[in-house]
């Protein structure tokens, strides 16, 4: 498949994630939408990695990279995402404990 397809797919996914962040009030759902964004990035990275790898296979001398960097980056993104999830859920739970709500607009003391 041409790389453009992957790009558009990934960006579409990314934008769906963003739209979710924009339209939802449930903190957990928003967080999930952010995960969608990260996955869109991951997908694109893997696709690029593949693209570079094919270029590498075609002409190893000229290639900048074998493409493996992209996949490793995905690995790190997952690491970070996992860490974020643990912290994020902890925060959401903490808030839920105090307010019994996961509505991000529920707490609105900080403004102006």
């Amino acid at each position: 498949m041409p790389i453009n397809y992957y790009i558009i797919t990934a960006i579409a996914l990314f934008c769906i994630g963003i739209t979710g962040v924009l339209t939802r009030r449930n903190a957990i759902i928003i967080f999930m939408c952010i995960e969608i964004m990260l996955n869109a990035v991951n997908l694109l990275l893997v696709a690029f990695s593949k693209m570079f790898h094919m270029a590498y296979l075609a002409n190893p001398a000229k290639a900048v990279t074998s493409g493996i960097d992209g996949q490793l980056f995905v690995f790190f993104i997952m690491v970070v995402a996992a860490a974020e999830v643990s912290v994020g859920l902890a925060i959401i739970v903490m808030m839920y404990r105090n307010t019994h709500s996961v509505d991000v607009n529920f707490l609105n003391r900080l403004k102006n």
Partner: peptide, 28 residues
């Protein structure tokens, strides 16, 4: 403090997503 933390976290991760998309495109 709760509110700040939540807002910071959500928006921070959101911007992380944007940063990663940027890095990815650069990589591409």
């Amino acid at each position: 403090s709760n509110e700040a933390s939540l807002k910071y976290f959500l928006m921070g991760s959101f911007s992380t997503g944007i940063m990663l998309m940027g890095i990815t495109l650069i990589f591409g």
